[in-house]
C-alpha cells in the first residue's frame, strides 16, 4: 500500500542537485537529475556516513562528498569496486510537485528490505 505525500515543488531542488527531508528516522535525500527525474535515498553513505545530498549528481548517480563512493540513484547500490547499498524509497513528480511514499518511509526502521 502506498501513501503518496507532497514534500515540495520540483523547482525547490536545482537540476543535478538534492535537498533533504527530515523524518523521524533521520534525513532522506531527494535527488533531481539533469532530466528531471527524482529519487529518494537515505542521506547517509554506508561507508562513513557522508551526507549524500551534498554530493555531485551525474546521470542517475551521486558521488558521496566524503570519499567519492558512487551510488546508483535507481537502486541505491554502490558502483565500481565499492560494495554497499543505501535504502531507497519511491518518489515521483506529478504536476511539478515531488511526491514520496510515506508508507515506505514510516516502515523504514522496522523493515528496510521492503524499501
Amino acid at each position: 500500500m502506498t501513501n503518496w505525500i507532497d514534500i515540495g515543488a520540483l523547482d525547490d531542488i536545482p537540476p543535478r542537485g538534492a535537498r533533504v527531508v527530515r523524518t523521524a528516522h533521520g534525513c532522506v535525500a531527494i535527488f533531481r537529475t539533469g532530466d528531471d527525474q527524482v529519487f529518494a535515498l537515505d542521506d547517509r553513505c554506508p561507508h562513513k556516513g557522508g551526507p549524500l545530498s551534498e554530493g555531485i549528481v551525474h546521470g542517475a548517480s551521486v558521488t558521496c562528498p566524503l570519499h567519492n563512493w558512487v551510488f546508483s540513484l535507481e537502486t541505491g547500490l554502490a558502483q565500481g569496486a565499492d560494495e554497499g547499498s543505501v535504502p531507497s524509497y519511491s518518489a515521483r513528480v506529478d504536476s511539478g510537485r515531488i511526491l514520496i511514499d510515506a508508507a515506505q518511509l514510516s516502515g523504514q526502521l522496522s523493515d528496510r528490505s521492503a524499501a
Binding site: 515540495g8 523521524a24 514510516s106
Partner: peptide, 9 residues
C-alpha cells in the same frame, strides 16, 4: 530541509 516529516512519522 525541503520538508519536515517528523510530525507525520
Amino acid at each position: 530541509p525541503v520538508a519536515d516529516l517528523t510530525l507525520q512519522a
